[in-house]
Amino acid sequence: MEKFLRSKSASFVLPFVATLALFILWELIVFIFKIPPFNLPAPSSIFRSMVEFAPQLLQNAGRTLWTTMVGFVLAIAVGVILGFMIGYSRLAYITLYPLLVAFNTIPKAAIVPLLAIWFGANAIPATLTAFLLAFFPIAVNVALGLDTVEPEMKDVLRSLGANQVEVFQKIGWPHTLPYIFASLKIAASFAFIGAVISESVASNAGLGYLIVQATADFNVPLAFAALLVLAAMGVLLYSAFAVVEKKVIYWAR
């Protein structure tokens, strides 16, 4: 048992077993307590709905994925630049950081209606919401990474006569990479949440939009099917970054 827990396959097999167990338990509860599908559909009816509405699910999932990724890429660009400014410039830190924190405390769902007024009920508010939610953790982590370089490491380089650029190349950047990757995993989930929030408030497509439409039609199994697709996409997105992270920063432990 010990040996299995430490094996690589365990980390794949056990989550599947847990998910399967959850579905079986869920199915049983729905069956035993005779819960109407209108309140809580059984997994079997969710899967049936998934097959039935596969084209819609696929199309809307594509839209959600697209807006999430565009927002996310924007967030990486802005987040990394902001992070560098805050991490390297005391002036930027003092001026910008309080603003960033204040901005980050605004619930982004509250901004979506405004975005919809400005840009209409389309993909733009979703992309922007994804971006707004995702850039903050990236900026903070980049700044944190730059700020936590050991002074002695810098001393080693400075005593060799290294200039600022070289200190950044040899130490600052590689030291910050693990922080960036840690933030990317979080930021990807955030971008995803942002896109779906926006879609459910003001959009013309996407999984969030589909869920709102489905519940309005009392098609609860379809809403659940969309939720499951969302969960699967979230897990895939996260693991994609985990894989890239392992490849790029193999040295970090």
């Binding site: 050991e150 002695e152 001393d155 070289e166 040899k170 130490i171 990479l177």
Partner: peptide, 26 residues
Amino acid sequence: GIAFQNPVMLPWRNTLNNVLLPLEIV
């Protein structure tokens, strides 16, 4: 050349590349 109590090697470089570091700068 400086050696501190804490050896501060760069964790993303193997031993050889850590030793080579000064030659990339000096």
